[in-house]
C-alpha cells in the first residue's frame, strides 16, 4: 500500500479519458479520445452528442487501459471519476462507470472535482512543487486564480465575471472563421500576425481582482465587421491582437493576485489555455520578475485527461478522503465553496 494505484475516469466535456497512475507518479497506461470530429460542424461542443460518445467509448477504453497496463481491478487501490463540474450527461456516464467499478471490485470511490484535477495536476508532472502555490486555471469553461494551500484546500482569489478566457479564444476564432477547436486555431493564426488592432483590456489595472473577456470578444466582432474584405494578413493581425490583449489581461490579474499571497512557492498555470505558448511565455516572465519558479504541466496534461483525475484520486486517497456510492453528479461545483458569487456570470465554478 506504500505506492497506491488509482484508476481515473474523465468525461465532463468532450474528451473521454482513462488513466492508471501510481502515487510515485508513474502513468501505467492512459487513453484520451477527443470528440472534435463530432462537434466540428456545430462550431462548439453539443452536450447530447458528447454524452453519446462517452457512453459508447468509455467501457472499451477502460478494458484497453487495464489490458495495456497488465493490471486487473483487484490490483487497483481506488477508482476516481470526475463528478463535476461539467456537461452533466457526460459526467453521469463517467461517474456511474466509476461507481459500478468501485462497487463490483470492492474498492473505494473518489468523486473528483474536475477543477481539483487541473489544480493538482502540476504536482503529477513536478514532484518538487509544494503547497501553497498560486494557480491560474484557464480553460474553455473556467478562468480562476486559486491559492492552492493543500489537497482539498483551495482559496479562490479571482474568477471571470462573464466569459472564460478559453471561451473568448474559441468564440473569437469562430468569428474569424478559423475553425474548431478555436483556441489552437487562433494561436496558429496569431503566429503570422502583428497585434496592430487596438483592442480593450477589460479590468486591467482595476482594484477588482476578477477577469472579464466579453468586451474583448465583442471588440473582435466589431473589428472584423469593420473590414469588408479582410485578407489572411488582416485576420492574422486581428488574431494576434486578440491574443495579446487576452495575455495582457491574464498577466495583469495574476500580478495583482501574486501581491496578495506572498506565501506562495510557485506560479502555476493549468487548464486547456495553458497550452498557449504566448501565455506561457508571459507568465514565465511574470514569475521570474517575482523571483518565483514557473510551473506549467506538459501540454497533454493541460487539456482534459484521465491522468489528472487519477492523480487527484491518488492525493485524496493518501489523505484518506474517499466518497460513498451515493456521490452526486454536479453540473456546478465551486472548488472554494466559501468564495463569494461575483457579478455577471462566475456561474461555471
Amino acid at each position: 500500500m506504500h505506492n497506491p494505484l488509482v484508476l481515473g475516469i474523465e468525461s465532463s466535456c468532450d474528451e473521454t479519458a482513462v488513466a492508471l497512475v501510481r502515487a510515485d507518479r508513474t502513468i501505467l497506461a492512459q487513453r484520451i479520445a477527443s470528440q472534435n470530429e463530432a462537434h466540428e460542424r456545430f462550431g462548439g461542443v453539443v452536450p447530447e452528442l458528447a454524452a453519446r460518445a462517452h457512453a459508447d467509448r468509455l467501457a472499451p477504453m477502460l478494458a484497453e487501459v487495464l489490458d495495456e497496463a497488465g493490471v486487473s481491478l483487484a490490483d487497483i487501490d481506488a477508482i476516481a471519476g470526475t463528478a463535476g463540474p461539467g456537461l452533466i450527461g457526460g459526467v453521469m456516464v463517467g461517474l456511474v462507470t466509476a461507481k459500478a467499478l468501485a462497487m463490483a471490485a470492492a474498492k473505494p470511490l473518489i468523486a473528483v472535482n474536475h477543477l481539483e484535477g487541473h489544480a493538482l495536476s502540476p504536482r503529477l508532472a513536478n514532484a518538487a512543487l509544494h503547497f501553497p502555490y498560486l494557480l491560474l486555471l484557464v480553460s474553455g469553461g473556467h478562468c480562476q486564480l486559486l491559492c492552492v494551500e493543500g489537497v482539498g484546500r483551495y482559496r479562490r482569489l479571482a474568477t471571470t465575471i462573464d466569459d472564460a478566457v478559453g471561451e473568448a479564444f474559441d468564440k473569437s476564432a469562430k468569428l474569424l472563421g478559423l475553425g474548431f477547436p478555436g483556441g489552437p486555431a487562433l494561436e496558429r493564426a496569431a503566429r503570422a500576425g502583428t497585434p496592430r488592432f487596438a483592442l480593450p483590456r477589460p479590468l486591467v489595472g482595476s482594484d477588482e481582482p476578477h477577469f472579464s473577456f466579453a468586451g474583448l470578444k465583442s471588440a473582435v466582432l466589431r473589428a472584423r465587421a469593420a473590414m469588408a474584405a479582410p485578407t489572411a494578413h488582416d485576420i492574422a493581425d486581428l488574431a494576434a491582437s486578440f491574443q495579446q490583449a487576452a495575455c495582457d489581461c491574464l498577466v495583469d490579474r495574476t500580478a495583482r493576485a501574486l501581491a496578495q499571497v506572498p506565501e506562495v512557492t510557485a506560479l502555476v498555470v493549468a487548464g486547456g489555455v495553458a497550452a498557449n505558448q504566448s501565455i506561457r511565455g508571459a507568465l514565465a516572465d511574470l514569475a521570474a520578475a517575482h523571483g518565483l519558479p514557473f510551473v506549467a504541466p506538459p501540454m497533454w496534461l493541460c487539456t482534459d485527461n484521465g491522468a489528472m483525475i487519477a492523480w487527484a484520486g491518488v492525493e485524496r486517497f493518501l489523505a484518506g478522503d474517499i466518497d460513498d456510492l451515493n456521490a452526486p453528479a454536479r453540473p456546478r461545483w465551486p472548488l472554494d465553496p466559501a468564495a463569494e458569487a461575483v457579478r455577471g456570470a462566475g456561474v461555471k465554478a
Binding site: 457512453a55 453521469m92 471490485a105
Partner: peptide
Amino acid sequence: AGARALGLA
C-alpha cells in the same frame, strides 16, 4: 454505463 462497468469488473 453501469451495466458495462459491472460486466467488465
